[in-house]
Design a binder for these strands. Structure first.
Lengths: 199, 199
DNA sequence: CCACATTAGGTACTCGCCGTACCGTATTTT
DNA sequence: AAAATACGGTACGGCGAGTACCTAATGTGG
């Protein structure tokens, strides 16, 4: 058949799915989740809403899937000191949550409410991954004698990151000053993991 | 004029405002914020949307105002021990966040995004009020010698409640088991405020 | 190489709900 | 009594989610 400039072979399957996700990710960065509309995604992907609804049940699911495209997974740091590792982790989180992408993440978290199956798909958000990272860092510190073994406790290990997240939730803060991160580490995290009552 | 059964003197001003708020509060408890529609509130209050929009700029503002009707302000406990006070505060928060009203609060927080002027109107949510309560309790503990004076630090004082809130945010948990509260107090809060590095 | 099953594309539609406009009428104020 | 104010009724514009239905392209198995 005639291949004029606007005609390209019809996409299907994985190709089309990738195009939709790409379009959704672009819309997400430009307009946020609130401004993510199915019609615009469809138009931008050069297709229509049917193709989207055949793949994702609703707007939220598409939003989560598109966000995953944008988020990168991270490796635990190893600066040699617990203080350095903790600060590095907090700074990474601070950068991410301060970025437009962080704003999108917060919108998605809000929209997901308490739907675990969706929350679990948000990288760096699944409580398990975050906890594992802090336990890794803390485990090395225990081996170096920088922290008490009894500190290897999920709730203790993640105190710092939880406190930082709180800064974003309660203050509507766009970004947390570095002093806050230092404060969290020096006033809360390090005292907590160092001197622990023998229980 | 004839007063048949359906005719009552037309309400205005504060009377009407109270009726609207009452209706909105009822809708809020029955359907949550997501299910709070202006049309239903108007109908339930026996008026129409005009009367609402003359008073509140949009649905969110009405939702916040209605929530305030439902939420009660609280006094700091005084059980005689820091552990008792802390547990009591956490249990109160747990009860509230577990209740339908707590779900509404989370919806409102999500919808408000980072709009301080609205966040500030949510009782028990304004960071200041919460912080003040914990500092009060902690101050008494310091006076009793149960905690180090250096623990009188906003971020330290509120650690426990922040951790509990985190349970609700990350797990979509409907309620936190009491063991979690005890764990937070004994594993994190008390160790932190008791043995602090002289710094 | 052809019949058939899939799946994309196009379009139009329903539905819910926010927010606004207009206008007549009751109540208050002067 | 007249004027100003605020309520009540109703209708409407707009947007966006999700659905229905049909046509056309693609791929697959015989």
């Amino acid at each position: 058949m005639a291949e004029d400039s606007t005609t390209r072979t019809r996409r299907r399957g994985a190709t089309l799915e990738a195009a939709i996700l790409h379009a959704a990710a672009a819309e997400l960065t430009e307009h946020g989740y609130a401004g993510l509309t199915m019609d615009r995604v469809a138009k931008r992907a050069g297709t229509n809403k049917n193709a989207i609804y055949r793949r994702w049940p609703d707007r939220l699911a598409l939003g989560v899937a598109a966000y995953r495209q944008l988020a990168t997974t991270i490796e635990p740091p190893d600066t040699g000191t617990l203080r350095g590792d903790a600060l590095e982790l907090l700074r990474r989180a601070n950068r991410h949550w301060s970025s437009p992408l962080g704003a999108v993440l917060r919108e998605l978290l809000a929209a997901a409410g308490g739907a675990q199956h969706l929350l679990a798909q948000l990288p760096g958000q699944s409580a398990d991954a975050m906890t594992a990272m802090w336990l890794t860092v803390l485990g090395r510190a225990v081996a170096r004698g920088e922290a008490a073994p009894s500190a290897l406790h999920p709730r203790v290990a993640t105190v710092a990151i939880v406190l930082l997240r709180n800064e974003f939730v309660t203050r509507g803060a766009p970004t947390a000053p570095d002093e806050v991160l230092v404060d969290i580490v020096d006033q809360v995290f390090l005292p907590l993991v160092r001197h622990r009552s023998p229980d």
